[in-house]
Nucleic acid binder design. Structure first.
Lengths: 195, 195
DNA sequence: ACCTGAACACCGTTCAAGT
DNA sequence: ACCTGAACACCGTTCAAGT
């Protein structure tokens, strides 16, 4: 944390650039991370940027990793304390369904295919899938069925937010979570229908 | 279809530019539509482009509308012929689940929030939601429940493809559709569980 | 050790001038 | 009617030179 100065101005460090980059991601997605704009914003030249980072790619890489470590394992312990698996799922979904979602998260999800973003998304997703599998295992489902439902649940979560970024479509969005929780946690449905 | 020439070279029209633009979208998303690159590709100058289109925005707009009218109502009549609503849903999901998806579709879905893309996505999605609602209505569900399940089904579809663009994650993807169809078409689950 | 300033390539947009 | 070529602003990247 060396906060040196020169000629009155505070010298910049990697963290300053990364914070500015994450702000840009939140506002306009990864594409909005422009070295030139950040430099102007921070009162420096582009040349200065290249002292701290090899290139734009490294800035984005480092920024997303920073975000990941700060945001991915955040509410996990809290949720883990809920014993009933259905309630645990309900809590999790209410959390992400009703509240405003982290704009960085949305930006990353909708750029999951880009080579810069893919590894971050993969790591975060795997953590969450493991968490969901635990829930369905605790519900008494077989390993494979639990894995499949976890995928279904997470795919729904991702798609839901993808669709919700579109103002027009948000109107069609159901406002009760119960149905979703019910369906996801239903006993093996096909068998149910046969009785 | 005026195919004029001058000095040996065929003159370009709007359609030539739009085709090139859609190719670019398929390969690298909307961001890859660069007037400069397209011009080089087509053997023309950037200046020429601005004879046919007001700006880059209009090119993308027109291209996506062209794609929409060609791809959105394509297999609807064919699917509509299937009488059993569960089978209709199964057919629809198998179609999009197993086969390689149109890369333009994927590119658009993952840019659903961008102002240029949003209206197209909204129109296509609304058409498909209506179609899904029909299926659940035919299954005997009430209007509201049918609407909610349609949203669930479509959100899953979008999220599934979002996740599948990530090579790492595709491994966790379940390879049987049955579970998903079963859950989506299950009779009201909460009640089932209570008996 | 950290930054500036100039340079170059790429891209969006405009416009006078050419055919 | 359709296109070229030059111009300008924006952005990524490099590098010699400054403090």
């Amino acid at each position: 944390m060396d906060v040196s100065t020169r000629g009155g101005k505070r010298l910049l460090n990697r963290d300053d650039w990364m914070r500015a980059a994450l702000e840009a991601v939140a506002e306009g997605g990864v594409a909005a991370v422009a070295v030139d704009r950040l430099a102007k914003q921070l009162g420096a030249t582009r040349g200065s940027f290249y002292w701290h980072f090899r290139d734009r790619r490294e800035l984005i890489d480092a920024s997303l990793e920073k975000w990941e470590s700060e945001h991915t394992t955040e509410l996990m312990p809290e949720v883990d304390a809920i014993a009933d698996p259905v309630e645990r799922l309900r809590y999790l979904f209410r959390e992400v369904y009703e509240q405003a979602v982290d704009p960085i998260e949305v930006a990353l999800a909708s750029a999951a295919g880009e080579p810069l973003v893919a590894p971050v998304v993969a790591r975060v997703t795997n953590t969450r899938l493991a968490f969901l599998r635990r829930i369905f295992r605790d519900l008494g489902l077989a390993r494979r069925e639990a894995a499949d439902r976890a995928w279904l649940a997470y795919a729904f979560y991702v798609g839901h937010h993808e669709l919700a970024t579109n103002d027009e479509l948000r109107k069609s969005q159901p406002n009760r979570l119960d149905l979703i929780i019910d369906l996801l946690t239903a006993p093996s449905a096909r068998k149910e229908m046969r009785r």
